[in-house]
Simulated assay, not measured.
Amino acid sequence: MTQEVQDLLKTPCFDLHVEAGARMVPFAGYEMPVQYPLGVKKEHLHTRASAGLFDVSHMGQLRLHGPNAAKALEALVPVDILDLPQGKQRYALFTNDEGGLQDDLMVSNFGDHLFLVVNAACKNQDIAHLRQHLPDDVEIEILEDRALLALQGPLAAQVLARHIPYTADMVFMDSRVLKFDGVDCIIGRAGYTGEDGFEISIPAEHADRLTRLLLSEAEVEWIGLGARDSLRLESGLCLYGHDIDTSTTPVEASLLWAISKARRADGIRPGGFPGAEIVLEQIATKAVSRKRVGMIGLGKAPVREGAVLYNEQDQEIGIITSGTAGPSFGSPIAMGYVAKEFASLDTLVFAEVRGKKMPMKIAKMPFVEQRYYRG
């Protein structure tokens, strides 16, 4: 065994993955399941049709305590945290002084504290960022002894309601602390597949038992990182470090919806976040040179991340940041960045793959309709 493999962390569900025959790979410092014997395509289609279970315990889970926690966090994100209702969660972005994106995250308000879930690859830098910028009266509690599961798909709600009846009354972006077979779990009705579903934070000591309870349901199959990636791409959702990063502003990334009205120039608490002057100027003037767009492949072969994009005159105009065969959509799809003048729907572009130019057209995202349960 190499030192690299020895140094990889394991989630509380590691033994369950091995037992299920998962192919384990290094991912964000952890040994994670990329697929199971079912295979990536069947796992993807199962999630769209039934209920898929994902181990996302590599993500960072944090609590912020203190009466000024919301005000302090709001100074780091272009999102309305002060008015986030208790029992609700919101998608947020950490920005830098240039308006670039340091990470994306989920923030839940539990009244006496905020609960944050951050990306695995950015976990340590996010914690350092919070420690550097939050005042002394805001305590950061790092939850290192919890698993995080995502139960996703059209049958996820009926499966979970058998064990936690109250979840049936939750709607998209609700967050609750509820008992699951006697154990207090943090449950949010959200996910990363575009399907209805839940994210369930479980104390590590109970993770094996409660995970087995979910897996015992006929509708539920383990789903690996491979299908997680194709599902989120069909749903038009960004992957940090690929589709967004520190060089990308929210306006370039077509994430205007993630900037709360309260924090915009005409809002009740305008600006006040890192890079606000740059971001608000871009919103006002639309003065960006590139835009994140969706693309549909006009051939059969998928186009992968890193493929350079050209216009009909063979001039370089952008790059693919994510690509997949589109198992549910039925043809190759991708997202990436193109020069602003080529971002209109149905514009023909060409991706270079092994020396060949593959035709694609700019398309609306999501490619597959999002099915979040809003009540």
Rank of each mutant, 00 (worst) to 15 (best):
His17Cys: 15
His17Pro: 15
His17Phe: 13
His17Leu: 11
His17Met: 13
Val18His: 05
Glu19Arg: 07
Glu19Ile: 06
Ala20Glu: 10
Gly21Ile: 03
Gly21His: 04
Ala22Cys: 09
Ala22His: 04
Ala22Pro: 10
Arg23Glu: 15
Arg23Phe: 15
Arg23Gln: 15
Arg23Asn: 15
Met24Cys: 14
Met24Ser: 13
Met24Trp: 12
Met24Gln: 14
Met24Arg: 10
Met24His: 13
Val25Leu: 07
Val25Met: 09
Pro26Tyr: 01
Phe27Gly: 12
Phe27Lys: 09
Ala28Phe: 08
Ala28His: 12
Ala28Trp: 05
Ala28Thr: 12
Ala28Asp: 12
Gly29Glu: 10
Tyr30Ala: 07
Tyr30His: 14
Glu31Gly: 05
Glu31Ser: 10
Met32Val: 06
Pro33Glu: 03
Pro33Ile: 00
Pro33Lys: 00
Pro33Phe: 00
Pro33Gly: 05
Val34Arg: 02
Val34Met: 06
Val34Gln: 05
Val34Ile: 15
Val34Ala: 06
Gln35His: 12
Tyr36Leu: 01
Tyr36Lys: 00
Tyr36Trp: 05
Pro37Phe: 01
Pro37Asn: 03
Pro37Val: 01
Pro37Ala: 02
Pro37Gln: 02
Leu38Trp: 01
Gly39Thr: 00
Gly39Gln: 00
Gly39Glu: 00
Val40Phe: 03
Val40Cys: 05
Val40Asp: 04
Lys41Leu: 08
Lys41Arg: 11
Lys42Val: 11
Lys42Asp: 14
Lys42Thr: 09
Lys42Ser: 13
Glu43Ile: 08
Glu43Gln: 12
His44Cys: 08
His44Asn: 12
His44Met: 06
Leu45Ile: 02
Leu45Pro: 02
Leu45Ser: 03
His46Cys: 10
His46Asn: 09
His46Val: 09
His46Lys: 07
Thr47Ala: 12
Thr47Ser: 09
Arg48Asn: 10
Arg48Phe: 12
Arg48Thr: 10
Arg48Cys: 11
Arg48Leu: 14
